[in-house]
């Protein structure tokens, strides 16, 4: 167990060993965060790198009364969103048209069982279009409200809600298909 307080102090002093220790401690979970927002591992690692540079740059602003991991996680999420906005490959899917704003899918009442492991689930989320993917991650996983998401992505609150509903429906459909195929393979084996 590392002493986060001491680690932060040493990082603020500019000690490279402390910076590396901090990175090694948080790199794996944070790459998981970045992975969920991007479409490739290369992009995820780019975001991770950029995010950690920001972490070290703004570490002085970390007050120490909260959880360091959560603080770094917020930076990673923000970095990922900015990366999506900047990157031309994602921009098209992030621009929400007026038609999309008015469209609202009916929310499925079902709560399918999530039998996939973390990696499989993340891969499933990554199959969503980037706009859906970002909104789903922000709302369902990070817990941001639609007001906050609208501020982060520069969209209307209603757009965020409708996109989330779409993403959720798609995922539920895919999960149901996955669970059916798992059941089928189970039966086949037995």
């Amino acid at each position: 167990m590392i002493n986060e307080h001491q680690l932060v102090k040493d990082c603020l002093k500019g000690k490279p060993s402390a910076q590396k220790a901090l990175y090694e401690h948080f790199a794996a979970p944070m790459l998981g965060v970045c992975y969920r927002y991007t479409k490739s591992m290369t992009d995820a690692e780019d975001v991770l790198q950029e995010g950690f540079v920001k972490v070290f740059h703004y570490l002085g602003q970390f007050r120490g009364d909260g959880d360091l991991g959560a603080w770094i996680r917020r930076i990673m999420v923000t970095t990922a969103i900015n990366y999506l906005k900047k990157n031309s490959r994602y921009q098209y899917d992030l621009s929400f048209s007026a038609e999309q704003q008015g469209y609202l899918h009916p929310v499925s009442p079902e709560n399918p069982e999530v039998n996939l492991d973390a990696k499989q689930l993340a891969d499933l989320v990554r199959q969503l279009p980037p706009g859906y993917q970002a909104i789903f991650n922000l709302h369902a996983i990070e817990g941001y409200t639609h007001v906050e998401i609208s501020a982060m992505l520069g969209i209307h609150e209603g757009t965020s809600r409708s996109q989330y509903a779409r993403a959720r429906n798609l995922l539920i459909t895919w999960l149901q298909k996955e669970s059916e195929s798992i059941k089928m393979s189970h039966y086949a084996r037995s």
Partner: peptide
């Protein structure tokens, strides 16, 4: 559904390549 998704997502850990740290440094 959201809760289950959150729990699964928090468990995700992936090891980055050494080039990432080199880039950060």
């Amino acid at each position: 559904f959201e809760k289950a998704m959150q729990e699964k997502a928090q468990q995700l850990r992936l090891d980055p390549s050494p080039a990432v740290w080199q880039g950060v440094a």
